[in-house]
């Protein structure tokens, strides 16, 4: 039971960005992926989720042994993969509430049961309102979010921190098996980081979720303790170790890694 990435090569607009990435994230475990800006971390996360812009030229990615490559993003979501995005897009006119309702219903199979509404009922493809409402309220509490938030349009005018919280709220409702958190810490102040991390940890316990935490600071790892730390430079994992690796990196910076690599060559 794992999210497996095997020798993944990815190109964007004809330029190779990922140059052979391999990772194996077991359910229930936490991996941190740390790398400098522009090293290809977001490219990896978008590719895993199936953004059409990213072209896989070699390798594979699998969830519980099943390849993701032929799946559309929604199929990947329904297979249990979640991506908390670094830059979530805004969708005007769509309330966070109605979006969450639709997405939760889709991932939990309400959409499959009846694509067409049943006789006389408009929203047979949606999870019953009351049940959903109750669950949302629980998750809002967990993340210490104000319910008025639900009435706002999806990510429109959200502060950086609000966007990140909304991403984790989505994760909480979609209940994935594996989550990729792409710089969820950026934009969160120290209190918010603590609250959100606590929420992520609780969800990981509840769902036995495998986590791939992408970051370029060690900060979030004080709250979400990684089992494995990978250092990612120029489209490759260049070093793998335990939590101590993150601390060394924090002290010495990426220059240290680059020097080590140069020595190793």
């Amino acid at each position: 039971m794992a999210l497996e990435i095997r020798d993944l090569h990815v190109a964007v607009d004809g330029k190779e960005i990922l140059k052979g990435v391999s990772l194996n994230v077991e359910r229930g475990s936490t991996h941190a992926l740390m790398g400098p800006n522009g090293s290809g971390k977001s490219t990896l996360s978008y590719t895993l989720m199936g953004h059409p812009k990213y072209l896989i030229t070699q390798g594979d990615a699998l969830i519980d042994g099943v390849s993701l490559l032929e799946m559309t993003p929604d199929q990947r979501a329904r297979a249990g993969l979640f991506l908390a995005m670094q830059y979530p897009v805004a969708i005007s006119g769509v309330s966070l509430y109605s979006f969450l309702h639709a997405a939760t219903s889709a991932v939990r199979g309400f959409g499959d049961r009846s694509a067409r509404p049943a006789r006389g009922r408009f929203n047979a493809h949606l999870m019953p309102m009351r049940e959903f409402r109750k669950e949302v309220n629980g998750k809002l509490d967990l993340l210490e979010m104000d319910p008025v938030f639900l009435r706002r349009y999806l990510n429109e005018g959200f502060s950086g921190g609000e966007k990140k919280r909304a991403e984790i709220l989505q994760m909480a409702l979609l209940k994935p098996k594996f989550s990729v958190l792409d710089e969820t810490d950026s934009g969160l102040d120290i209190d918010a980081l603590r609250i959100v991390s606590k929420g992520i940890n609780a969800l990981q316990d509840e769902l036995n979720m495998g986590l791939l935490v992408i970051t370029h600071y060690q900060r979030i790892l004080n709250y979400i303790h990684p089992d494995v730390v990978h250092i990612f430079v120029d489209g490759r994992v260049v070093k793998t170790g335990d939590a101590k690796l993150a601390e060394i990196l924090e002290e010495q910076g990426y220059e240290w890694v680059r020097q080590e690599l140069a020595l190793g060559d």
Binding site: M49, G50, P73, F99
Partner: peptide
């Protein structure tokens, strides 16, 4: 892509 990544069909 954003909406589809949340399980919604195209």
């Amino acid at each position: 892509f954003y909406l589809m990544s949340r399980g919604l069909t195209e």
